[in-house]
Design a protein around this nucleic acid. Structure first.
Lengths: 153, 153
DNA sequence: AGTATGTAATTGCCTTGACAATCATTGTCT
DNA sequence: AGACAATGATTGTCAAGGCAATTACATACT
């Protein structure tokens, strides 16, 4: 019996969107598994928000949503959850009374210290078979594709 | 007023997962928009299923799910929708009475003829700024990363 | 000042997709 | 043959995220 049914009569097309899709899914599963394994009770999107704030300081919900290509309503609910878990706090915005500033609580900073170790590791795992020059080349090409897409109306 | 708020105080990290994420989202939006614009009432996942069957012949639901990294339950409901719209038909499987074979109806084949034109176009749009050698290099690198991830337990 | 237009966050509603349980059938093992 | 594990599809239930409408505030215009 075939142990790896992989391509059951479907030939691998390896088109660009398919490759990107497969890699994205692989990365996501990889990181979510590490989060679960380490007992951190947050998901992929939530961990990204924590990461952004940890690296760039407090942010407005709208900016977080835009940066993650996320809907604003989804961001509201995502922040609800992070706040319920005590990792994040909504503070009024100094200049704009409509807006908020999302800050990490001490628990949130502690969470980030735990996460950041294996997150970096998980991100390099996918590239472990590439030499430094190939990695650089890959990054360059991907950035160009991203910029091309950004400019596509 | 800033017309492009892009990075509002969040510096672009351009990490590998982030690049992949952005490119995936860009491609998905691009293709979904083309589907909408051309009046085809199916979404991204559904169009992939039609594409696979059109290119590889009738398939079992389970194989479609595995190939698209999709849950089997989700595939059942996805096929329900394609069947409701008349693009696809469930036939009993010749060898295995548990299984089904999913075939394109005439309407489904007609749909594919309409789609295939701009789908190919949409897929190349993202790569339009890359020379042939760079495209080849990019494909090579991405395949290697994908294979690395496949082998990561 | 006053009006209009734009933006920030929130909420309700809906679709998509994941997970677990279930049923039918197949293959394996003794 | 009979027991038993493995597989194919389906269903219920749930979480994540998109869209549209709403409310509150800010900015621009006259």
């Amino acid at each position: 019996m075939q142990k790896t049914p992989s391509l059951c009569g479907i030939r691998d097309d390896s088109s660009f969107p398919m490759l990107i899709r497969q890699i994205r899914d692989g990365l996501l599963h990889q990181i979510e598994r590490q989060l679960v394994d380490s007992g951190v009770a947050i998901n992929y999107s939530q961990h990204l928000v924590v990461k952004i704030i940890a690296k760039n300081g407090p942010q407005m919900p709208g900016d977080l949503a835009r940066y993650l290509d996320h809907n604003a309503g989804a961001m509201t609910r995502l922040l609800d959850q992070l706040e319920d878990k005590g990792y994040v706090e909504r503070k009024p915005h100094a200049q704009d009374r409509r807006a908020l500033t999302i800050e990490l609580t001490p628990a949130g900073k502690e969470l980030w210290r735990k996460m950041s170790q294996f997150i970096e590791h998980a991100q390099d795992l996918a590239l472990r078979d590439l030499k430094a020059t190939d990695r650089a080349k890959l990054f360059d090409l991907l950035k160009r594709v991203r910029d091309t897409l950004d400019e596509t109306p």
